[in-house]
């Protein structure tokens, strides 16, 4: 079995003495696969995601990224190697679309020519031709366009791991569906592993190779969508999944 790109090994995280958010989380994300982390709000899925790029630190257990404990890797350098997409894209409102896409390459000190070449290619991939979109600012874009820029920014430096936290959460259902279709098309061209946090089980089932159902800080079941449908591990997973199937 290949070394996981991201691995949670008995991870615990506590926000207050009486608020245990992650209680022995175990999960692996293998190279190139999309793993969706789903569960009711407050189940700890966003917390888990933020442990991967050290926006948060665990209170117990080990988070391994690229085969090494995250705690041994310098946070800034680590984050530049990991793509990061949040709701609405979290774009920098005072920067143009191009400047946003080139953010990480710029932090990494790429030459302007290389950055430009890369941002042209990324914008083309997400369906925003550079000629029309590169000079625009986020406020002039639709929600779907902003989200595309967010994805282009996350992938600009060709990371082998991408973290996505409710990436399409701010979109209306039609735009959301459209982005999901495009995401699947992009996935055939990008070999990055993706950890996708979503509260939308339908989205998880459509986009992920494996779905991890979380409840109160633990993974209840992880497996391909079909397995979760056919063989739910317990009553919670059965009910959670049936809500989507209904």
């Amino acid at each position: 079995m290949p070394t996981p790109v991201l691995e949670f090994d008995e991870v615990r995280k506590r926000f207050a003495p009486d608020r245990l958010v992650l209680d022995g989380l175990r999960l692996e994300v293998l190279p190139g696969e999309t793993v969706a982390l789903v569960g009711p709000s407050g189940c700890g899925k966003t917390t888990a995601l933020k442990l991967a790029n050290r926006l948060l630190e665990p209170d117990g257990g080990v988070v391994r990224v690229f085969g090494r404990p995250a705690a041994e890797q310098e946070p800034v350098a680590l984050r530049r190697r990991i793509g990061f997409v949040i709701q609405e894209g979290g774009l920098f409102p005072h920067w143009t679309v191009r400047e946003n896409v080139e953010a990480v390459p710029r932090l990494l000190g790429w030459t302007p020519e290389r950055r430009r070449e890369r941002s042209d290619a990324m914008l083309a991939t997400v369906g925003l031709p550079a000629g029309a979109f590169a000079p625009r600012r986020p406020a002039s874009l639709s929600g779907g366009e902003r989200q595309r820029v967010g994805v282009a920014r996350a992938l600009a430096a060709a990371p082998s791991l991408v973290l996505m936290d409710e990436p399409f959460g701010a979109l209306d259902p039609i735009a959301r569906r459209e982005m999901q279709k495009e995401f699947l098309a992009w996935r055939t061209r990008w070999d990055a592993a993706v950890l996708l946090v979503t509260h939308d089980l339908g989205e998880a089932f459509r986009l992920a190779d494996r779905v991890a159902v979380m409840a109160s800080g633990r993974i209840r079941q992880v497996g391909p969508p079909d397995t979760l449908r056919r063989e739910p591990a317990d009553a919670f997973v059965r009910e959670f999944v049936s809500e989507f199937l209904a």
């Binding site: 790029n53 984050r79 190697r81 990061f84 949040i86 990480v104 932090l107």
Partner: peptide
């Protein structure tokens, strides 16, 4: 969200202050 994005993509605190 913008501050989180700045941290998440790997800006140092100084870069976040100066650029964002």
């Amino acid at each position: 969200a913008v501050v989180e994005a700045a941290d998440g993509i790997g800006m140092t605190r100084g870069e976040r202050l100066r650029l964002v």
